[in-house]
Design a protein around this nucleic acid. Sequence first.
DNA 1: AGCAAAACCACAACATATTGTGATATGGAT
DNA 2: ATCCATATCACAATATGTTGTGGTTTTGCT
Lengths: 73, 73
Amino acid sequence: MDAKEIGTIIKKRRKHLGVNQQTLSDLAGIGLNTLVAIERGEGNPQLSTLLTILDTLGLQMDINLKTLDYETM
Amino acid sequence: MDAKEIGTIIKKRRKHLGVNQQTLSDLAGIGLNTLVAIERGEGNPQLSTLLTILDTLGLQMDINLKTLDYETM
DNA sequence: AGCAAAACCACAACATATTGTGATATGGAT
DNA sequence: ATCCATATCACAATATGTTGTGGTTTTGCT
């Protein structure tokens, strides 16, 4: 789970909910530029920024033990 | 999942692995002060900082749909 | 109580995220 | 091809995270 993956998830979820970037940035109360950068995986957002966006989209963050990654075995 | 919860998880995991804050901060390559703040839930780390610490501890971040929280129903 | 390790705090310097403005590029529909 | 909403980009100003240093407090153990 890196910044790019997170951006993809956010963008996908936003589209699924049928809202544009401007609306999401308003609802979440974060700057449009910030949201754009995060969705593109080019950002390194602060935890609060990320959590706010996820929450607005009905998503949550979880922390778990690393799982086996068969790709790299 | 807020900053405080994340800090608790990190601290618990670090203790479970038997390493002190100095060692973890060295292994992860982040400043000691930064780690301390995060563990205490007083920090608002950048995504890269958080991911590095989690990775060092053998933890990973996941994003999921919000689950029903019976506590608040 | 006394000791040593671990954890925490305060400060200043530096690095970087966030924001608004305004402009440009891209996409889909007719 | 044209139009319009959406998405992306560039820039400067501001806010905030990160770091090292040095000191203080707390914890765990005997």
